[in-house]
Nucleic acid binder design. Sequence first.
DNA 1: TACAAAATTTAGACTGCTCTAAAAATTTGT
DNA 2: ACAAATTTTTAGAGCAGTCTAAATTTTGTA
Lengths: 224, 224
Amino acid sequence: MCVIISLTEENYLKAIYTLSHLIDESEVSTNQISDHLNNKAATVTDMLKRLAEKKLIHYIPYQGVKLTEKGRQTAIKVVRKHRLWEVFLVDKLQFKWDEVHEIAEQLEHINSDELIQRLDKFLGKPKFDPHGDPIPDANGQLNIVKAIPLNQHKIKGMFTFVGVCEHSKTFLQHLTSIGLKIGDTLKVEEINEFDNSCKVKINKNNSQFFSNKVASNILVEIKK
Amino acid sequence: MCVIISLTEENYLKAIYTLSHLIDESEVSTNQISDHLNNKAATVTDMLKRLAEKKLIHYIPYQGVKLTEKGRQTAIKVVRKHRLWEVFLVDKLQFKWDEVHEIAEQLEHINSDELIQRLDKFLGKPKFDPHGDPIPDANGQLNIVKAIPLNQHKIKGMFTFVGVCEHSKTFLQHLTSIGLKIGDTLKVEEINEFDNSCKVKINKNNSQFFSNKVASNILVEIKK
DNA sequence: TACAAAATTTAGACTGCTCTAAAAATTTGT
DNA sequence: ACAAATTTTTAGAGCAGTCTAAATTTTGTA
């Protein structure tokens, strides 16, 4: 009944979960997984056979994979742990938001339901991690986030910065260097047709230009 | 220069460290390690060869092993992490002292110096874990504890309960059930020659009997 | 002190996870 | 529609860590 799932298997399930959510709930290919995890396609094929054996994924050779319900529950539990630990690292240990990913990658595999339940309570049952990503609840339910990238709005006006698409250290450090934090108000004052860059005021500060690349990785909601 | 040490290797080094400190700084035998880690002697021999290769232990076949300085530093870092995480679990997440060992066994392998430094600060740089065991500092220095088991004092009088020898769940739960916590004052009122049991008053409460077995696992200092 | 018992090591094998090289299947472009 | 390119799988191998069974070394004692 209670199949043991190794740290490596957890990482594969998380990868499949993440990749399948990039665009709707599509099937994930062997190469996508091998790129994401930095190992070879042959290695991935091997692992897919084992995960299918354990009923954690639906796998038809050459057709890509999808998580089973059991696989999804496992993956989402890892995501929940990852994001809760990130909150701990930032809120309690004063890490910066660009410093926590690697440590959370380790902590997410600590196995204790009691620990996670208590950590969640200790942190005040947070709904979002330091990057604005939603934290699944203990039952694996996830807030549906309706935020979309700033560059897709194509309109001037007031927005709230609620999350990022890109989680790389360099991008997060860039946002920090321009003084942008989750929750800030963005006022789009100009949109330039030719390169899709925009002039934005952060809170009450001076305006600055965001390239399309930056704007495409900033998730916002229209400010009420 | 910077040899990678696996989780398994860390566990072997910690086992050797622990076992070598049971009695002075003696050498540790293959069987002691295999008992402690619940695996076979042949498996231990294999690992000892690998640890010796990496200059983490001094190993002469059939002669037992001793940690090198590098091995000791590695082991003590794991012990430091284990004990700090135990403090976190008890002080911040309200775990009981008999519930934290298994979780700390996992957390002790999380690899981030920055994390440990910040956790230490967050916890108020504690000197002892919830069982009264000393926490090595960041340089691997350990407070020498001069506490000895209650049954070895052989005298009546006032003592302070500062730690335990036995760390099993059942023993710790037993102490909890008789209302004994680290820091409590023990007044030894009688010592029975025939079975070495003693009558003890905990703080200002009613007196009760401690068997020799209990008294031998309770570390105390003479109360000033 | 010699020999039996105990401790330890060696030999050979298995699993999980990884790789490279080669074969097979699928997709794409003309 | 089919050849070329791409993707995926298969085959075979290696390493870390574990095991059992057998051989070797040390220890304790008769």
